[in-house]
Simulated scan of single mutants.
Amino acid sequence: MKKKEAIFIASILVIAGILGLGFRISGQRSHNTIRITVDGKEFGTYSLSKDQVIHIGDTNVCEIKDGKVTMIEATCPDHYCMKQKAVDEHGGSIICLPNKVVIEGKDSAEPSESDDSPKIDAVT
C-alpha cells in the first residue's frame, strides 16, 4: 500500500468517526417533561423532576415519582393504561384509549413551533 492510499483511508476513517459521534450525541435527547392531552386538547405540561400526583379530569390519575410517570388510577374497563411502561427521561407514552388520555415524554430542548415556522405537509 502506498503512502497516499494509507493517508486517504485514514482520513476517511477519521471523518466517519466524527460523523458517527455527532449522530450519537444528537440522538440522545432528554425528555425531562411530560405532556398530557385529553381528547386531543392539551391538559398540561409537567416536569419529571418534581414528584406529584395529577388528577386528569374525573377519569384518570397519574403519578410522577423518581423521574418516572405511571398511571395509577383509571375508570376505563380494561386498565391497560395502568399496565403500560412508565414514561421517563428516555421518552415513551401512556395511552388510555377509552378516556382519550395521552401522556407522552416531551423533549424540552425542542424548539417550540410558532405560527412563523414553516409547516411541511406533503406526501411523496
Results as ranks from 00 to 15, higher is better:
5 E>I: 03
6 A>Y: 09
8 F>E: 14
9 I>F: 11
11 S>D: 04
12 I>S: 12
12 I>K: 14
13 L>R: 01
14 V>H: 01
15 I>M: 07
17 G>L: 11
18 I>V: 12
18 I>A: 11
19 L>I: 07
20 G>T: 09
23 F>R: 09
25 I>C: 00
28 Q>C: 05
28 Q>K: 15
29 R>C: 07
29 R>Q: 07
30 S>K: 14
32 N>A: 06
33 T>A: 04
34 I>V: 13
35 R>Q: 05
35 R>P: 00
38 V>Y: 10
38 V>C: 11
38 V>H: 10
39 D>K: 15
40 G>C: 15
40 G>W: 10
40 G>P: 00
43 F>S: 00
48 L>E: 10
51 D>W: 05
51 D>N: 12
52 Q>W: 12
53 V>W: 02
54 I>L: 08
55 H>G: 13
56 I>R: 11
57 G>D: 13
58 D>A: 14
58 D>C: 00
58 D>Q: 08
59 T>W: 09
59 T>E: 09
62 C>Q: 12
62 C>S: 13
64 I>F: 06
66 D>M: 10
67 G>M: 06
68 K>D: 13
69 V>T: 07
69 V>L: 06
71 M>H: 05
71 M>N: 05
72 I>W: 14
72 I>N: 12
73 E>M: 14
74 A>L: 03
76 C>L: 09
77 P>M: 03
80 Y>M: 13
80 Y>E: 07
80 Y>D: 11
80 Y>W: 15
81 C>N: 06
82 M>P: 01
82 M>A: 08
83 K>H: 15
84 Q>G: 00
86 A>M: 15
88 D>N: 11
90 H>E: 08
91 G>E: 01
92 G>Y: 11
93 S>C: 10
93 S>N: 10
95 I>M: 05
95 I>H: 02
95 I>Y: 05
97 L>M: 07
98 P>C: 08
99 N>K: 10
101 V>R: 05
101 V>H: 03
102 V>Q: 11
102 V>K: 02
103 I>T: 14
103 I>L: 15
106 K>I: 04
108 S>H: 13
108 S>E: 09
108 S>M: 07
116 D>R: 15
118 P>H: 15
118 P>G: 09
119 K>T: 06
119 K>N: 04
119 K>E: 04
121 D>C: 10
121 D>V: 09
121 D>E: 02
